[in-house]
Design a protein around this nucleic acid. Structure first.
Lengths: 233, 233
DNA sequence: CATAACTGCGATCACTGTTCGCAGTTTCTA
DNA sequence: TAGAAACTGCGAACAGTGATCGCAGTTATG
C-alpha cells in the first residue's frame, strides 16, 4: 500500500533504473543548512530550497518524502559536526560535560538547531554515533540503560535551552521581545512580585558578567553530577 | 505608526466606544485550549478557533493581534492551573521539586504545552506569579538573581522534556515514530554501537518499570540539588 | 527491443496567517 | 441633538505553505 520505509535513513537514495539524479541528499542538506544559517529555520521551505538549488519544487520529493525528512537530515548533519574522536578520561561527569560543551558550540554555529521542533526520536547515523559515545562515557555508571538514555536526552534539552538563552541576548531582539521585556519590568515595578523585581535589579547591575561559556560549564557540571551520581534510595 | 503595545498583556481588551463585543479573550482562550487538548496544537488555527466559536475568522483579530497572542494566552492559562498556594517549607530544593511536580501534572493534562515553540520570554500574569513563587522558594539561596532565573528556566525545560518522554510512550505512536524505532533497533543490532544495543536491551527486559512520577521526582531532586547547591568554585 | 523504473516538473489542491474595506452599532463631544 | 469618532463583525482576497498528480523524457533490465 504505502511506501514502506517511513524514515529517510531506511530509504535508499537511488534506484538503479532511471537517469542519474542531478543532485543528492547531501547537496539538499547543505543548501538547507546554509539557508537556515542565514535566515533561520522558517526560511527552509520547499520552495526556497528548490529555488536555491535551481530545480522545480516538486523535484525535491524525488530525494526526500517531505519537509520532516529535511529536518532529519539537517539535524544529523549538525550532529556530524561534533567531534567524537576525543578520548574518554574515565570520569563520566567530566566526559559528558566536555561533550556537552562541544555540542554547545555547534548550537551556537547553527541557531536553527534550537528552533527545530523536538520530535521524539530524531536519530540519524551521526546522532547514533553521538548517543553511542555518550553511553560509552557512562559505561561504568551503575544505572539502567533506560535511565542513561534519558540522561542524554535531558542533557541535550539543557544544551538547547542554554543555547537559546545565549543567542537571545546576543542576537538583535525583535520588537516582540522588547515589548515582552517592557511588560515584565513594568509589572514587576508595580509592587507585587518583589522577588522578580529584585532578581531583575541583580541582573541589570550585577558585576562583570560571567562568560557564557564558563556559566554553561559550571551549570552543566552540577546537573550531570546530580544525574549521574549513584542513587541513594 | 504601528499599534503601540506589541504584547497581549499590555493591550486593553476593550475600548469604550463601539458596540459590546460578543466574546472575550477568556472565551477565546478556553476554546483554543479545548481544541488543543482534543486534537493537538496544530488544530489551533484561526479558522478552526473561529468555527468552534461561531464567528467569522477575521473577527478573531478584534480580540487578539495574531496567533502568537493566542499561544501566549493559552500558555498563561495553563500556568494558572498550577497551585501556588502551597506554603513553602524553607528547603529550596524540596520546594522547587514540589512545584515542578505540580507543573508536571499540568503538562500531562495539556499535551500541547510541550509542543508550543519555546519563545524567549512568554510571560503573562499567571506565569509571572509562578516565577515569583519559584524565586521566593530560593530567597535564602546565595546566588545572583540572574542565575536563579536561569535555574527556573532550566527547570521548566526539564519538565517539558520529561513530559514529552512520558507522553511519548503512553500515547499511540505515529508510524513515523515506529519507523524511527525500527531503524534504531535495526542499526543497533548491526554490531557497531554496542552500548546503544545494551541500553536498549536493558530497556526491554528491565524489571518492573519504576513509576514515571517517582522517576521524575528523583531526577528533578538530583538536578535541583546540583543547581541550587552553593558553588564550590 | 519492450518493459519497468526512474527523473524532473508544471499545475493544482487544501491549508495556513493576515489584511482590507465596508456596513452597522455604540458612545463621546461640540 | 447632530455629528464625529471609535468600535464590532466579517466576506473577500492575498501571499505563503506542504504535498500530490500526471505527463514527457531517460535509463537500465530482462
Amino acid at each position: 500500500m504505502a511506501q514502506e520505509p517511513v524514515t529517510v535513513w531506511a530509504r535508499p537514495e537511488r534506484g538503479t533504473r532511471g537517469p542519474a539524479a542531478v543532485h543528492s541528499r547531501a547537496e539538499l542538506t547543505a543548501v538547507a543548512v546554509e539557508l537556515a544559517d542565514r535566515s533561520g529555520l522558517s526560511a527552509v521551505s520547499m520552495r526556497q530550497v528548490a529555488k536555491a538549488l535551481g530545480v522545480g519544487q516538486a523535484s525535491l520529493y524525488r530525494y526526500i518524502s517531505g519537509r520532516e525528512d529535511l529536518l532529519d537530515l539537517m539535524t544529523d548533519s549538525a550532529a556530524g559536526e561534533i567531534d567524537l574522536d576525543v578520548p574518554l578520561s574515565g570520569d563520566p561527569v567530566a566526559d559528558l560535560a566536555a561533550l556537552a560543551a562541544r555540542t554547545r558550540t555547534v548550537h551556537l554555529r547553527h541557531h536553527w538547531l534550537s528552533e527545530i521542533p523536538p520530535e521524539p526520536l530524531r536519530l540519524g547515523p551521526r546522532s547514533l554515533d553521538y548517543l553511542e559515545y555518550a553511553l560509552r562515557a557512562m559505561a561504568a555508571v551503575p544505572l539502567p540503560g533506560q535511565t542513561k538514555m534519558e540522561i542524554v536526552a535531558l542533557m541535550n534539552a539543557l544544551i538547547s535551552q542554554f543555547a537559546r538563552a545565549e543567542l537571545q541576548v546576543s542576537h538583535a531582539n525583535t520588537d516582540r521581545q522588547a515589548a515582552q521585556a517592557a511588560y515584565l519590568s513594568e509589572t514587576a515595578a508595580k509592587g507585587d512580585h518583589p522577588h522578580v523585581a529584585a532578581a531583575m535589579a541583580d541582573h541589570t547591575e550585577a558585576g562583570p558578567a560571567e562568560s557564557p561559556h564558563a556559566l554553561f560549564e559550571r551549570a552543566m557540571h552540577r546537573v550531570l553530577t546530580g544525574l549521574v551520581a549513584p542513587s541513594s534510595s
